[in-house]
Nucleic acid binder design. Sequence first.
DNA 1: TTGAAAGCGCTAACAG
DNA 2: CTGTTAGCGCTTTCAA
Lengths: 329, 329
Amino acid sequence: MRRVTIYSVAQACGVSSSTVSRAFSRPDLVNESVRQRILTTAAEMGYRPNRSARATATGRTGMIGLVVPDITNPFLPLLVRAVQRAAGLADWSVLLVDAEGDPTAESQLITQLQGQVDGLILASPRAHPVALREAIRDLPCVLINREIAGLASVICDNSAALASIGDHLLEMGHHRVALVGGPADSWVAAQRATTVRGWASRAGVILDDLGPFEASFDGGRAAGAALLTTDATAVFAFDDVMACGVLAELARRGVTVPGERSVVGCDDVLMARMVTPSLTTVTAPTDQLGSAAVDLLDRTIDEPRAGPENRTLPGTPALRESSGPPATP
Amino acid sequence: MRRVTIYSVAQACGVSSSTVSRAFSRPDLVNESVRQRILTTAAEMGYRPNRSARATATGRTGMIGLVVPDITNPFLPLLVRAVQRAAGLADWSVLLVDAEGDPTAESQLITQLQGQVDGLILASPRAHPVALREAIRDLPCVLINREIAGLASVICDNSAALASIGDHLLEMGHHRVALVGGPADSWVAAQRATTVRGWASRAGVILDDLGPFEASFDGGRAAGAALLTTDATAVFAFDDVMACGVLAELARRGVTVPGERSVVGCDDVLMARMVTPSLTTVTAPTDQLGSAAVDLLDRTIDEPRAGPENRTLPGTPALRESSGPPATP
DNA sequence: TTGAAAGCGCTAACAG
DNA sequence: CTGTTAGCGCTTTCAA
């Protein structure tokens, strides 16, 4: 009852180990009937290919590392699922690594992944670009929601969606809106802020620039409090989590939404539908982000010399209960 | 500029490859000064041990598989983090696998992990015990929040916490409460239901047994509607997600909480603090669950013949805004 | 404390 | 289409 290897299967089938190997990894190169025989006896014997052995032989582990800045951010589980699904289709396993909110941990963790994965997907990394590049070395790598020169990336462009929601607010009569910024070192936060500022100046809307706040529920509550010091009738929050914080703070103070203030989030995490009132937000194309990232990584691995590709996917507006016409005084 | 291996490092140091190998994996067996020299030149050369090669040689991958039923369930990211952290301390990598809500996928995915991981942690698996055992084979395995004869497990026992919250409700004057059951095939759901029923009969409280409902936000909304057909003044929901659904439905219908109905959840996910009113619930000892699971797995791997160990950790009550005295008619 | 050498299970030319 | 034969990078006896 020793371990089942290609050798034991080969012996049981009266073929050579290479044939068994081929039956699994290069099925087209082996006679159909022989292949069937091998496959069935292998199944009977309970054979499982040893991935590590294959990896030493081929130099490929069949694994990709997925590094997330903070798995408790509700946006990430959806992305993780999307990446896993796409990776599975390409017969890759995903090694998930959580930086637990610490930007410097990111680069360390990446370093540790060297020699363990064939490639890397970094979801909205917060680490310093220099540290990041150093950690990545020459591992094939794709960024999600961040751009760094020389690296492939997939980004979600929310500008059209945010502008469209802005226009909608304007039509409803909001002429003064607030912007709740995310963390100062966040690439997406900067993107979104720029977008909203651009829209406001184009639309001739007065913008109250609040923050930056911590990108958390409590950060959102603080932002909610800050919002009330302004005359803005609507607010763009950095993301849904913060928007939920804003909603909670407004509710606590008895401020009605959308009557007294309209609130807009970003990402469309599950929670956005669950809160009361449900949140007007921008839906990120999570599945496409994941599969695009895997797709790009695939190419980067196969053709390391090809220049880094960048792909942009648009978010879509989701108008819900938290936005509406301002109360007419 | 070829790949850096123990051989290149050995050559650069004027020692044999075995010595380099030992310098990393058995540091005590090599002369301190030699070791230092090896370590520094290895670092300079950018050497990274090849995990796959080590795995083929030792028969251990250094990876554990973590199978979750549905990563979008907000309880799981917290658990994932806890497991990862504990695993990292023991120098293990975690291969996360998401069954995307499909119980039969669980066993398939487990099968695929064979030969790829040294052990398995299954978080509240929903699959049939027979299928599960078959898939697991003789891979060391620890269950979280489910018991199956012959397998090690770590479970969170909420009975004391739920009873204590029940008693508190009773003291405040609730004499009729409802129970919103989770999915029929869920082990935890059955546990919790039994606990609440037991408490109710002991406390002499009338129990309205609703459900089972789908364990989702929408399931919770349905439950909220069902709740209003009863005279119960308080409700125990299967988990926080459902409880949030109940809250949302009650809010939609203008039913006040806790004035007209009190709502109790279970798990204490991030969302529980974010909803308005914040949710009275049972806090699961997530970190301990994770580290206990890793700890048990460690033992199971080291001493496969030792009988399966089972560990129980208590949840703790968290009284928040969603529970209070019933309106006096 | 170190080195030589034999594997670990699998793949990949290269012949046949 | 199939078998032979080297490795892949690392660990681990066994001697020295």
